[in-house]
Amino acid sequence: MDLLLALFVVACIVVLILAGLVWLRLGSERSDAGADSSRSDPAPGVDRAVTRRAGPPPPSKSRKYLSEEEAAYYLVRDSDGRLPVRVSSGFFVHDGTRKQVPPGNRALTRAGVRSFTVRGSSYYPDDSLAADTSPRKRARFKREPENEHDPGAVAVLSLDADGKARRVGYVNKGYARALTKRLEAGESVNARFMRGAPAGVDDQGIAVVEATAEDMRRLFRR
């Protein structure tokens, strides 16, 4: 009888030990699963990529121009709403790296600074030579619904020495469509030449920038 009782007690102890081991193992697995979940999903409905602060992109191979990735990282407004860029020699130049950004850069467009290279200037050599397209000079736009080649065309105009408006080329088609809607709505467009030449001087290409008055002052600061 005593032997049976001893065996029963030993069996109970073994069962309790096995149950404890199973409980510890399950608890460990639940803890690991919770840790993995917290690492992969910081909060319900939050994209993990958004919770990480992206570092600067690798530098581009060019020492002169910002890559698209660099532009997207650097050309953003600061806490005061200012963009770290200015116009120099017909290009946007980033204040920090001193690298150039061509007109039409998408990062600047998203920030509200639209720009483009004027098309077709070579077809109007007399007007382009007579007009003053110096940086900072006002650029004007004129719709040409009667244009036989493109009824949606928008011409770029500048004044000559006598105050006469001269056609120096055209807005590219993509920008022209959006610009036409704004002009038809009576919106005032603040546009300046960022690349060009004084009247009587051959230009090496013409480019225009459109921005708010405050952005324009900062773009053309000395």
Rank of each mutant, 00 (worst) to 15 (best):
T117W: 00
Y123D: 02
R25H: 07
D80P: 00
G186N: 11
D47N: 14
A197Y: 05
S128C: 08
P102M: 05
D215V: 14
G96I: 01
N172V: 13
F116N: 01
D80H: 09
I13L: 15
M194I: 09
E148D: 08
G200E: 04
A185Q: 12
R143K: 15
V171R: 09
R63T: 14
R195E: 05
P59Q: 07
P103Y: 10
P198N: 05
C12T: 13
N147R: 10
L5R: 14
Y65F: 15
S60H: 05
V76R: 11
L7D: 08
S79N: 02
K64W: 12
A130K: 06
A176V: 10
G112Q: 03
R98V: 04
Y74K: 03
A165M: 07
W23N: 09
E70I: 13
A161L: 13
S60N: 05
G81V: 01
P103N: 11
E210D: 08
K61T: 09
S38V: 13
L24W: 11
A197T: 08
A49C: 00
A43E: 10
R140F: 15
I17T: 09
E148F: 08
S28R: 14
A213R: 14
V22E: 12
V15K: 02
A6V: 06
E70M: 06
D47T: 07
A155N: 07
D47R: 15
P57K: 13
V85T: 00
G196H: 04
G169D: 07
D162I: 00
R192D: 03
A165R: 11
P58E: 14
R166I: 00
R119A: 07
H94I: 01
A72R: 15
A165E: 14
T212H: 07
S88D: 09
G20H: 02
S79H: 04
T51C: 15
L66G: 03
M1C: 07
S79T: 04
G169M: 03
L157V: 06
E214I: 12
R53G: 04
P103R: 10
E210L: 15
G196I: 11
V154E: 10
F8H: 12
F116D: 02
A107N: 06
G20P: 02
P44W: 07
F220C: 08
V189I: 15
K64N: 13
F193W: 06
D47K: 15
S28T: 07
L129W: 01
L179T: 09
L159G: 04
A131M: 00
L219K: 08
R86H: 11
G200S: 03
E184D: 15
R30M: 10
A178I: 04
R136N: 02
G104P: 08
V168P: 04
A153C: 10
R30P: 02
L16K: 08
D132C: 03
S31D: 12
A131Y: 00
L108S: 03
V9Q: 05
I206C: 03
